[in-house]
Amino acid sequence: MPRPADAPKPTPAELDLLQVLWPMSSATAKQVHEEMLKERPDVTYATVLRLMQVMHGKGLLIRDESERSHVYAPAHARDALQTNLLKDLMQRAFAGSAKALVLAALKSGISKKERDEIERLLKEDKPEDKA
């Protein structure tokens, strides 16, 4: 199995499908289609099946063919793939600067709740002053 850093970058449609599949751990195309219908009533079963087949070919999904209905699972954990995508974005759009990426994210608008959570995380990570 390839490392997430070596994995192909998912398209927006593939990311949408992964967002549905990650909480399910593994599922058939029919199960994924039924779950996707809740958010996108226009998506067809054929589209979901074809996308999952393409994603398997690209190495984004693994497939268990032991049953009549193939069962698919993400090839990479959510956090590993998200970290890989974030590093790629940081390199391509922000010249490798984590600070520039964070500042751009903050400027795009965050809620008070999100700001409070970020401040809490920063305070927790701050080393204690030893006098």
Score class of each variant (00 low, 15 high):
residue 1 M to W: 07
residue 3 R to T: 09
residue 7 A to Q: 02
residue 8 P to F: 10
residue 9 K to Q: 14
residue 10 P to V: 01
residue 11 T to V: 04
residue 11 T to Q: 13
residue 12 P to T: 02
residue 12 P to C: 03
residue 14 E to Q: 14
residue 15 L to V: 01
residue 16 D to Q: 14
residue 16 D to R: 04
residue 18 L to F: 04
residue 22 W to T: 00
residue 23 P to Q: 03
residue 26 S to L: 03
residue 27 A to E: 08
residue 27 A to C: 06
residue 28 T to Q: 03
residue 28 T to Y: 13
residue 31 Q to A: 15
residue 31 Q to R: 10
residue 32 V to C: 10
residue 34 E to T: 04
residue 35 E to I: 00
residue 37 L to W: 03
residue 37 L to D: 06
residue 39 E to Q: 11
residue 39 E to Y: 08
residue 40 R to A: 14
residue 41 P to E: 14
residue 43 V to S: 06
residue 44 T to H: 09
residue 45 Y to Q: 05
residue 46 A to P: 00
residue 46 A to K: 00
residue 47 T to C: 04
residue 47 T to H: 13
residue 49 L to N: 11
residue 50 R to G: 09
residue 52 M to C: 10
residue 54 V to W: 02
residue 54 V to P: 01
residue 55 M to Y: 07
residue 55 M to I: 07
residue 55 M to L: 07
residue 56 H to N: 04
residue 56 H to G: 08
residue 57 G to Y: 12
residue 57 G to L: 09
residue 59 G to I: 05
residue 59 G to C: 04
residue 59 G to P: 06
residue 63 R to I: 06
residue 63 R to Y: 06
residue 65 E to Q: 03
residue 65 E to L: 02
residue 67 E to T: 08
residue 67 E to Y: 04
residue 69 S to Y: 03
residue 70 H to S: 11
residue 71 V to G: 08
residue 72 Y to H: 05
residue 74 P to A: 06
residue 74 P to E: 03
residue 75 A to C: 07
residue 76 H to V: 03
residue 76 H to M: 05
residue 80 A to T: 03
residue 83 T to P: 02
residue 85 L to S: 13
residue 85 L to G: 06
residue 86 L to T: 14
residue 88 D to I: 05
residue 90 M to E: 15
residue 91 Q to I: 10
residue 91 Q to G: 11
residue 91 Q to W: 12
residue 92 R to W: 09
residue 93 A to N: 15
residue 93 A to Y: 12
residue 95 A to C: 09
residue 95 A to Y: 10
residue 95 A to G: 08
residue 96 G to L: 11
residue 97 S to A: 13
residue 100 A to G: 10
residue 101 L to M: 12
residue 101 L to I: 08
residue 104 A to Y: 10
residue 105 A to Y: 10
residue 106 L to M: 12
residue 106 L to Q: 05
residue 108 S to A: 15
residue 108 S to I: 01
residue 109 G to I: 09
residue 109 G to D: 14
residue 109 G to S: 06
residue 110 I to F: 05
residue 111 S to Y: 11
residue 111 S to N: 13
residue 113 K to E: 15
residue 115 R to G: 12
residue 116 D to R: 02
residue 117 E to G: 09
residue 119 E to W: 01
residue 121 L to M: 12
residue 122 L to K: 03
residue 122 L to N: 09
residue 122 L to A: 14
residue 123 K to D: 15
residue 123 K to V: 02
residue 123 K to N: 13
residue 124 E to W: 02
residue 131 A to N: 14
residue 131 A to K: 09
